[in-house]
Design a protein around this nucleic acid. Structure first.
Lengths: 241, 241
DNA sequence: CGAGGTCTTGAAGACGATCAACAAACGTGG
DNA sequence: CCACGTTTGTTGATCGTCTTCAAGACCTCG
């Protein structure tokens, strides 16, 4: 069933799939595997023979410098093909780490290879999925370079809302975000203390609250304006690829 | 001739190409076009019907916020398939701007489509090229989040050296980098003044000089150490994709 | 109940931004 | 050829955002 495959939902927010393509996608996963919170799904330098789809739970990409400090480069939500990059890259340049208990779908690289051999349209769609990651990266670079701390936080919460919506994980103005303030700081490039204070400021200004692992957006227009959020980089448009 | 196609050189630093693939690549470019410095090659929001390869000159990707401030998200050197992203994305999320007078190869999307229909290996190779951009983006996020200003500058100069080398644009310990300190600052997420001071500090410490649009690395080991530079994210390894 | 993780708040200080002024290099037209 | 404006690089001074260090409150879980 489609319902059990959020990654098909994610794709179908961007392009039409034929019945056959949907079937192939559904059969892509050879098995599922569960990961515990903080457990690495794939590690920097790995040469995996399969790619990982996030079916349930939250994960992130991160890089750790030799001096031990860590930077999260992307958050991943259900439906994200977290490790599709390793298929063309062969050797991974970063970690993928489970933030919560996660259900991961394992997709052998041979099957992806088969798709590139026989299903050109589906190949382009998978390619697109990795380029959305690249677009998210770019938007983060802009944020880290040119947005203030509050605007950066605001933008992240806007982004997550826009990404969780297509997979049905936004209820009203709220969504579940099982991430600590420390992890948030590692993603924003801020110190924990400052993140905490800026969250308090967003709360005080009535823009949003983040408590009990739940983001509630109180003033969407105000938040979007502060963040200068424009969702077009997420490619949320149904069109032939 | 291969010599006239730096983008084939770039690819051949990552994977073997068959004779046929090399021929197809050489014929990919329907025509070339010249751009002047500061001229946009493609613009945010464009829906180009072709992709652009940078044959000569330097360019960058950048995003401009509504409030006018700009962030460069990647520098491009000869051989980079600067606008391959627009093929699966359809609508571009950023600008590509010529930094110098540039020679651009125009590749119609239909030809790329044809490749995905008939040449699976070459498709994977092109896919790889876009994922290297994503890996560069990730490394920049790490830099902006967790590296000091000097380390960030050092890392950028290391990266450019490693990228210019495969296309034969590094001579000894020097390479040409026709970029102003203002543009450097827009890429680093720093103010012009601070970039200038940190460049002076790198010079004073004997690590590198950047003058007359030329970077000269004086102490590669020291620079790599300061930057914590590890080139593996650039995928500079010949292996089957 | 104590241990450890998370959130919160205070205070001090550093890194980098902003404002301002000037020097040097360059192209243009007189 | 020089005068001129423009762009780029350089330096000083001040200010503010964010970091670091530190400590206490709250929570869950053994």
């Amino acid at each position: 069933m489609t319902d059990s495959h959020p990654f098909i939902k994610k794709i179908e927010a961007r392009d039409r799939l034929s019945k056959q393509e949907r079937e192939v996608l559904a059969k892509l996963i050879s098995r599922t595997k569960e990961f515990q919170a903080d457990e690495p799904v794939v590690r920097d330098g790995d040469r995996p023979r399969h790619s990982s789809v996030l079916l349930e739970g939250f994960a992130c990409r991160s890089k750790t410098l030799k001096d031990g400090c860590r930077q999260i480069t992307e958050f991943h939500v259900p439906g994200d093909f977290v490790d599709l990059h390793s298929f063309p890259l062969k050797q991974l340049d970063h970690d993928v780490i489970a933030l919560t208990r996660c259900q991961i779908g394992i997709v052998p690289h041979e099957r992806l290879s088969d798709i590139t051999e026989t299903m050109p349209h589906l190949t382009r769609v998978l390619w697109l999925m990795t380029l959305i990651d690249a677009a998210v990266h770019r938007e983060w670079i802009v944020g880290m370079g040119r947005r203030t701390a509050t605007a950066r936080i605001a933008h992240l919460f806007c982004e997550l809302c826009a990404r969780l919506d297509p997979v049905g994980l936004v209820k009203g103005h709220s969504y579940h975000l099982p991430v600590s303030q420390q992890q948030l700081s590692d993603a924003l490039g801020l110190s924990l203390v400052h993140t905490n204070r800026m969250l308090a400021s967003l709360r005080k200004n009535g823009l949003l609250t983040f408590a009990d692992q739940t983001v509630t957006i109180r003033d969407w227009a105000g938040l979007m304006h502060l963040a200068q959020f424009d969702p077009s980089y997420l490619c949320l448009r149904l069109e032939p690829r």
